[in-house]
Design a protein around this nucleic acid. Sequence first.
DNA 1: AATGGATCCAACCGCATTAGG
DNA 2: GCCTAATGCGGTTGGATCCAT
Length: 243
Amino acid sequence: MGRSPCCEKAHTNKGAWTKEEDDRLIAYIRSHGEGCWRSLPKAAGLLRCGKSCRLRWINYLRPDLKRGNFTEEEDELIIKLHSLLGNKWSLIAGRLPGRTDNEIKNYWNTHIRRKLLNRGIDPTTHRPMNETNCAQEITTISFGSGATAAVAVNMKEEQQEDEDHKMMMIKSSKYGYQETDEKITRGRNRGLCFACSLGLQNSKDCSCNSSNGTSSSNNGTSGYDFLGLKAGGVLDYRSLEMK
DNA sequence: AATGGATCCAACCGCATTAGG
DNA sequence: GCCTAATGCGGTTGGATCCAT
């Protein structure tokens, strides 16, 4: 037999959490730690399903959460991460300490989408609206499982590119992917490392750091390690999650 | 002050993946 | 190895609040 049922849905509360419920949940997790969400409600004396407790804790009660408005820097980082990762809110949240995926998702849908639209940028494709029907520059990204298999993807149609981008995310999340030129040659980002393409020039993640006079985007041997991607290595998105 | 539309965001739902029995 | 519960994630919803008229 498998496991016992998830929760007695007939005897669980729904809707907004009360202060008392919050206090109970906080007190329980403080003394017992996170995890085992299924048994937590009963143990903590809460008439909630474990899923609801987990969500409440992660999105609202966690002590390390940063409350308050997003900064301009966070805005721009979210936009750039979204252009690379798509709607992978948990991955994006992993690069913004103190922010949750739900919070970022809400913020994206309420603020950033509009902000991009006002700039004339399609929030889905991150391209100027008036270019959406134009033929796109050829993009070549190689995927690989380990260091062997590689699939070149050449795209001209926006829709095709988006579909393939999704496939890239799916493949990369499962098997990792390898970029042949250690950079994504895509639109105006051509020639920049990942960090620079995200506006993080001269950061510790920037691989084309001018201070040492080298450009790893060409030499292929330096410590390119942005978003967990080592030089010549395989990006495993699972390693990006900061949980 | 009333009200109706717009906006925000916490919470729910359903699906996919992971892992225990 | 299969079945099923647990967990995690993204999309969506609905109530609360804000704002313009």
